[in-house]
Design a protein around this nucleic acid. Structure first.
Lengths: 128, 128
DNA sequence: CGCAGTGTACTACCTGATATAGTACATATA
DNA sequence: TATATGTACTATATCAGGTAGTACACTGCG
């Protein structure tokens, strides 16, 4: 269901978080869908259940999914944008860093804007 | 000279790399400038010299600065864009992640584009 | 030449995050 | 009750980041 690179330096639980978010944007997951259980996904991906749980907990903290003991884990019906100031600053900083790196790769403003547009389209991110 | 947050989870040497690149874009550092010596900067920032050296080595690997044994470390005269494919992929992925996070903060495409433009202007990144 | 300042290299060690392993408990559903 | 689920907890191993200390090589200058 998700692609995990064991050799990657980025933690598995973060790869999983990223994968869920991308799947949601791309349509592979829809609002209300039931997620695989912690143990099931752990079996599929050959990963320790604790690692799955960690990813699920973080996704729940961010309001993307919802866990119900005894029932399962589900994608939230309405993903509300929670205006977390600290998180906003983080994202802003990450964006800034990416743009600086893009510049040091020799890309100009126009090329960078084109890349951004392409990503937004690819992720089906439209107007508000 | 640079602002380091000891409590940040991002490694000190990466903060330093980021700081040098930003200083260069903003004009705080100019091509040919002499960087503080490893020991001097370590003293100023109350950081181990090895950490400074690690940052300098990475900056040299990226072609931003140049170290001359016995003389010092200098900002390169001409920062050449080296088309490192692996690095390109990294930057592309970092940009993608940042955009996904921005979307989950509730930002629409227009707002994101506005943020990008603001950053590019703030960093004086123009056309090629 | 001798000396100070510089970059560089290396080993050893500590800490925290990551991931795994195992166990146990709570709750919902059939 | 039985099963599947989420949840919690301890213990362990590994690795990256950072620190500490030492040593060596080179440059520039008196």
């Amino acid at each position: 269901m998700f692609h995990i690179d064991q050799r990657s330096s980025t933690p598995i639980y973060q790869q999983l978080i990223q994968g869920v978010k991308e799947a949601l944007l791309r349509g592979g997951l829809r609002f209300g869908d039931k997620m695989p259980s912690v143990r099931e996904l752990a079996g599929q991906l050959a990963i320790n259940p604790n690692t799955i749980q960690k990813a699920y907990q973080e996704l729940e903290r961010q309001g993307v999914i919802e866990s119900l003991r005894g029932r399962g884990t589900f994608v939230c019906q309405h993903i509300e944008a929670h205006a977390d100031l600290a998180r906003q600053a983080e994202v802003n900083e990450a964006l800034r860093k990416a743009l600086i790196e893009a510049h040091y790769l020799g890309l100009g403003a126009e090329q960078i804007m084109a890349m951004v547009k392409e990503h937004l389209h690819d992720l089906s991110i439209g107007g508000e």
